[in-house]
Design a protein around this nucleic acid. Structure first.
Lengths: 148, 148
DNA sequence: CTGGATGTAACAATAATTGCTACATCTAGC
DNA sequence: GCTAGATGTAGCAATTATTGTTACATCCAG
């Protein structure tokens, strides 16, 4: 394992829902999503819970319930997803235990590094904002093998 | 703990060495560096070992030994450091277990996601390349309290 | 030859992520 | 109302990465 796969799973789920909702009779459940993602339904519900808190999806409870996108796929960027799944911690961590304040470098390194790391985070956010779930759905469908 | 702090520690160490080597008589040892970073000398040696493999520093063994930069601080970018410390794995991970190949989304999501994640990595690398150890040293020294 | 440094293996502690079970809760439809 | 079927969520185990630490082999200036 290396980093986390929350963004990957969330994008998978949203793209799946974007395709699924083209059929008005279709119902997106955590069970069906779990089969596509190849994981446990609870993992999907955890993920969808975060997306719901961010306002990207809605859930209905009770029998025959399921999930819906609250916006058009064109209006959901990967930055929205990224922020929703709480990957918003800094990309690179500072020191675990604070460096020596009595050394010039130890004293100034964190304040000097912070804006650099901030620019890195911003670069990632800028890039994430350029892709939407609609883009993802188009690219995913373009991967399909010829049905001949 | 969240991500790793290897880049932070490596930049700290290199910036320290850049300042230290202004005094020709100074010797950079893992012990002295560990005090500034506030960690164990072995952690520093591990870090310096990666920087040496990347050709950024040299080590001398034996008594009175220590470490040297192999280039001017102006010629070491944070991208060099990033690559040296092996943080080069993808920023965001793909699925742990491969998604369902019999679902259109499961089939195409990884190929569609890969170039997106590649662009993210590239955005980070581009940003990292804009800062050098010399920049860091200047900014660190600018943080010092007035010596009045 | 010896002191002092690097080089490195091995291990413990901590934390994050993921997958899983179990169960409470809700509601459409009978 | 009841019930089937779904969400909501607590809690735990397994895996992994990171960091810190001890211990010891190795090297070399003096």
């Amino acid at each position: 394992m290396s980093g986390n796969s929350r963004l990957c799973v969330a994008v998978h789920v949203l793209t799946w829902m974007a395709l699924d909702q083209r059929d008005p009779a279709a119902v997106a459940t955590s069970q069906r999503l779990a089969v596509s993602v190849n994981t446990n339904p609870v993992v999907i519900r955890r993920c969808l819970g975060q997306l719901r808190e961010a306002g990207l999806v809605q859930s209905r409870r009770g029998a025959g319930a399921g999930w819906n996108l609250t916006r058009a796929p064109e209006q959901i960027t990967l930055l929205d997803v990224h922020l929703a799944v709480g990957d918003d911690e800094q990309l690179f961590a500072l020191h675990h235990s604070p460096p020596s304040g009595s050394c010039p470098i130890g004293f100034g390194i964190q304040p000097a590094l912070r804006p650099v790391f901030g620019r890195l985070d911003e670069a990632v956010r800028r890039e994430l904002a350029t892709t939407t779930i609609a883009d993802m759905l188009r690219d995913v469908l373009a991967q399909q093998p010829a049905t001949a």
